[in-house]
């Protein structure tokens, strides 16, 4: 099993947000997590990635590393990233003074070094990253701008998917990657994610809306409410939520 979350509890500023989450993800699976505002969807993503503002107060999160289950909660956020955990941010932050190219190459090499595959210098990295940029239809000039500096909302989201493509994570959480995207941008982002699906990695889509799931077909859909998964099912569950809302389930 790639990720196994058991009875996970977490708080932010002493306020309980996750109140007993259970979730299992196998390699090759795509899971969608839906739920009303404030249900804990984003918190779950951030806790798995290791955000320092959240305190885990109970439960276990194990991640398979080299065929062994490892306690993910013992690792720092950067260690989790180097092991193949990726979080596509809902609000990607700007990092002035660091070009996108420098940022991507440093990240790539940090992971490569840790995972034991060859690091790349700029001459090898450039064609590699340009190929990935085609997937999300980003122009080359974005490589030479500072990270997310002056990017539109849609460009920032595409840049997140570009990072995912470059880092090729084993488990990716996409936190409301569809929010703020027009339909064309949504298709581009969805196509990028679909290209990155493989039998070896897992993807978790955190979203409010069914429309993302028209383009990325999940294997499982979970409904999160008040810090717990209250219902799980197949893609049909998302359709029912879209037409009937959350009231029938709560």
């Amino acid at each position: 099993m790639l990720l196994n979350i058991e009875d996970l509890h977490a708080t932010v500023e002493d306020k309980p947000v996750l109140k007993g989450i259970d979730l299992k993800i196998e390699p090759g699976q795509v899971h969608a997590i839906m739920g009303p505002n404030g249900s804990g969807k984003s918190t779950l993503s951030k806790v798995v990635a290791g955000h320092p503002s959240y305190e885990v107060t109970g439960g276990k999160v194990s991640f398979e590393i080299n065929f062994k289950d490892t306690d993910l909660l013992e690792l720092d956020p950067d260690e989790r990233a180097r092991e193949g955990i990726f979080l596509a941010f809902q609000y990607p932050v700007e990092v002035p003074g660091v070009t996108n190219l420098e940022f991507l190459m440093t990240s790539y090499n940090a992971l490569a070094k840790h995972q034991g595959f060859p690091e790349m210098q700029e001459e090898a990295f450039l064609p590699f990253v340009k190929e990935k940029m085609k997937m999300v239809q980003m122009r080359e000039e974005f490589l030479y701008r500072s990270v997310n500096g002056g990017f539109s909302g849609g460009e920032k989201k595409r840049n997140e998917i570009l990072q995912m493509a470059v880092l090729n994570p084993r488990l990716a959480f996409l936190d409301e990657t569809d929010s703020g995207l027009d339909i064309d941008a949504l298709k581009i982002v969805a196509e990028g994610v679909n290209n990155l699906r493989s039998k070896d990695n897992g993807i978790v889509l955190v979203t409010h809306y069914q429309r993302l799931l028209d383009y990325i077909k999940p294997d499982f859909v979970h409904v999160l409410s008040d810090g717990k998964i209250i219902k799980s099912g197949g893609p049909e569950l998302a359709l029912k939520l879209e037409s009937e809302g959350y009231d029938w389930i709560q």
Binding site: D78, A81, F86, F89, P92, G97, T106, S107, A110
Partner: peptide
Amino acid sequence: FYLQSRGYTAERASQILSKAFVY
């Protein structure tokens, strides 16, 4: 956290952000 989630150590992330603050 954004930088750490991309594999940068906490120390390296702080260096970069201090630079970014001025740049």
